[in-house]
C-alpha cells in the first residue's frame, strides 16, 4: 500500500531491479540567492515511468533542467547511467519534450523529426542503438500521412506528437517531459496519455514526466515523485499500484480515485 512509503520521506529510494537511470545526490540549484532545489536525493529506476508533482515553485521543471544539463548544480551530484549530465548529453542518452512543442516552423513534420540526426554529424555523435526511422516514428505517434505538413497546419496535439517522435529518434534511454500536454484540451490529453503509455511499453525507456494534473500523474506514473516548495525538496515517493496495461476506464475505479485523493491531501501539506 501507499502508506508504506511514508517513512521514506526525504530519503533516497533504492530499487533492487532495473538499475539506476538517474541519481541525484544532495543536488542543489540556486538562482542568485534563491534556492530552487535544496539538497535533493533521488534515484530514478531504469525502465520506470515517473511522474513529478508538486506545488508551483517547487522546482519540478528546474529538476528536469538540472538532469538534462540545461542548468548546473550549485552543489551535489547528478549522474545519468553512471555518466555526468554533460557526458550523457553528448552521448544523446536522454531527450527532452517541452511544454510547447518547440518545432521549427519552417520544417515539415518529418524534417522536424529528422533534426536530431542532422545535428552533430560532423562531431560523430554516435547513437549506440542506431537511430530509429523517422517515418516509422511518425506512424507510431499516429501521424502517418502528415509527414509533409508544416507545424502551423497541425493541431496542438499533433505538434506535441511530432515533438515526441523527434525526442524518440535517437532512442534515448531516458525521456524527460516538461508538462508536455499542459496546453491541450482534456480529450486530446487523455488520448495522448494512452499513446504515451504505448510508446513507453514499446520502447522500454525511462520516463520522467512533470505535470500539474494529479489525475494525469496517477494515470501515467508507476511512481509519483512529490516535491515540496520553498525550497524545492523531496516530499514523498508514492508507488501507484494499479493494474497494467492502464486503460481509460481505470479513471473511474475507486482505487484510482483513492490515489488522487491521497495525493491531493499530500499536496496540501507541501
Amino acid at each position: 500500500m501507499m502508506e508504506t512509503k511514508e517513512s521514506l520521506t526525504g530519503a533516497p529510494v533504492t530499487v533492487p531491479h532495473g538499475g539506476s537511470a538517474a541519481t541525484l545526490k544532495a543536488a542543489s540549484v540556486c538562482f542568485g540567492s534563491f534556492t530552487a532545489i535544496d539538497k535533493l536525493d533521488l534515484e530514478i529506476e531504469a525502465g520506470s515511468f515517473y511522474t513529478i508533482l508538486g506545488p508551483s515553485g517547487c522546482g519540478k521543471s528546474t529538476m528536469l533542467r538540472l538532469v538534462s544539463d540545461l542548468i548546473p548544480a550549485a552543489a551535489g551530484e547528478v549522474s545519468i547511467f553512471g555518466k555526468t549530465t554533460e557526458e550523457a548529453r553528448l552521448a544523446r542518452e536522454f531527450a527532452f519534450v517541452f511544454q510547447d512543442a518547440a518545432l521549427l516552423p519552417w520544417r515539415s513534420a518529418l524534417k522536424n523529426v529528422e533534426l536530431p540526426l542532422e545535428i552533430g554529424r560532423k562531431r560523430n555523435i554516435d547513437i549506440p542503438t542506431g537511430p530509429r526511422n523517422p517515418r516509422e516514428l511518425l506512424e507510431l505517434v499516429g501521424l502517418k500521412g502528415r509527414e509533409n505538413a508544416l507545424p502551423h497546419e497541425l493541431s496542438g496535439g499533433m505538434r506535441q506528437r511530432v515533438a515526441i517522435a523527434r525526442a524518440l529518434v535517437c532512442q534515448p534511454k531516458l525521456l524527460l517531459m516538461d508538462e508536455p500536454f499542459g496546453a491541450l484540451d482534456e480529450m486530446t490529453r487523455d488520448r495522448l496519455n494512452l499513446q504515451l503509455l504505448d510508446i513507453w511499453r514499446e520502447t522500454g525507456t525511462t520516463i520522467l514526466f512533470v505535470t500539474h494534473s494529479i489525475s494525469e500523474a496517477v494515470f501515467l506514473g508507476q511512481k509519483v515523485v512529490m516535491l515540496r516548495a520553498n525550497p524545492g525538496r523531496l516530499r514523498q515517493i508514492v508507488d501507484i499500484e494499479l493494474p497494467e496495461p492502464r486503460e481509460t476506464k481505470l479513471r473511474d475505479t475507486p482505487e484510482f480515485t483513492r490515489y488522487c485523493g491521497y495525493l491531493r491531501d499530500l499536496l496540501e501539506t507541501c
Partner: peptide, 14 residues
Amino acid sequence: SPQTLELARILSAS
C-alpha cells in the same frame, strides 16, 4: 524561442 535554444543545447548543437 528560448525553448528552441534549449533544444539546441540538449542536442549539443554547435
